[in-house]
């Protein structure tokens, strides 16, 4: 066997080790997260139903993630379409600036927004402050995905529609939009996943109502709650893998519709 392939498999084991351990401890009938295992139990999942503060946090997170995903994708569509179809002065610098949150440490985004919201604008912290910040950090991911969808669309298709009497908007809606719908769905799902999982910005910007990751962070400090965290984690991993598989399916369909070869990866 090729030594590189052995290395690749070992590397995949390294990547998946934490995720594979999650269900092991979630179904373990013991208070302590360590080996040896104590036997099978589903009581930690049952315990999740009793934590009403967790339910509120999950509700908050879902609301924030849905709003951020929609806003980031709408803004992403504008940027990706502009980048794919038009040229203007300072195009490169403007588009790179929009992509900047991709590489900026999240704590910088968090503290600078905290200063602006609280000290400069005097706003109270709420779910909306988190949505504003999550939209900002999801936007570059959305644009990266949508660039693939808008990238190699043939402009002559829209021109043909306009020659046949459609308005500019009509041509976009009836010709381009159906072709990029898979990219849009993929962008919504990825942005949703990022927002749902984001901790540090939510930690700084959440008001009285914590998001799910902020609530989990609190749970991590109490050993008695750790098994429930493992159970919650198992559910989250299962859900996000489902979302990602769907997102990947739509991303590929989008590429196929646009007549592109798959170059792999979301980023």
């Amino acid at each position: 066997m090729n030594p590189l392939r052995i290395y690749a498999i070992a590397y995949l084991i390294f990547l998946y080790a934490p995720i594979l351990l999650l269900p092991v401890f979630a179904f373990n009938d013991g208070q302590i997260i360590a080996f040896p295992l104590q036997g099978f139990s589903t009581r930690w999942f049952a315990e999740l139903w009793t934590l009403s503060a967790l339910h509120d946090a999950v509700g908050n997170s879902l609301m924030i993630a849905v709003c951020s995903a929609i806003f980031a994708t709408v803004l992403g569509i504008c940027a990706a379409r502009a980048g794919a179809r038009h040229k203007w002065p300072l195009k490169g610098p403007m588009l790179s600036f929009i992509m900047l949150p991709l590489v900026l440490p999240e704590i910088i985004v968090a503290v600078s927004l905290l200063i602006v919201f609280v000290q400069v604008l005097g706003l109270g912290l709420s779910n909306w402050t988190i949505i504003a910040a999550h939209t900002l950090i999801c936007m570059p991911f959305s644009i990266a995905i949508l660039n693939g969808a808008f990238g190699n669309l043939d402009p002559s298709m829209e021109e043909a529609a306009m020659d046949l009497g459609e308005t500019r908007w009509g041509a976009f809606r009836k010709v381009t939009l159906p072709l990029v719908v898979p990219g849009i769905i993929s962008s919504l799902l990825i942005s949703f996943t990022i927002s749902l999982d984001e901790f540090i910005i939510a930690f700084f910007l959440s008001g009285a109502n914590p998001t799910m990751p902020v609530y989990i962070w609190g749970m991590l400090r109490f050993p008695a709650q750790l098994p429930a965290v493992m159970a919650l984690g198992t559910i989250l991993v299962t859900l996000s893998i489902c979302l990602l598989v769907i997102a990947e399916y739509f991303r590929r369909r989008g590429l196929a519709r646009a007549g592109l070869k798959d170059t792999g990866g979301f980023l």
Binding site: L15, I190, D197, I216, G233, V237
Partner: peptide, 8 residues
């Protein structure tokens, strides 16, 4: 694995 709960 990158997309699954960072904290956990």
């Amino acid at each position: 694995p990158f997309w699954t709960s960072y904290l956990i």
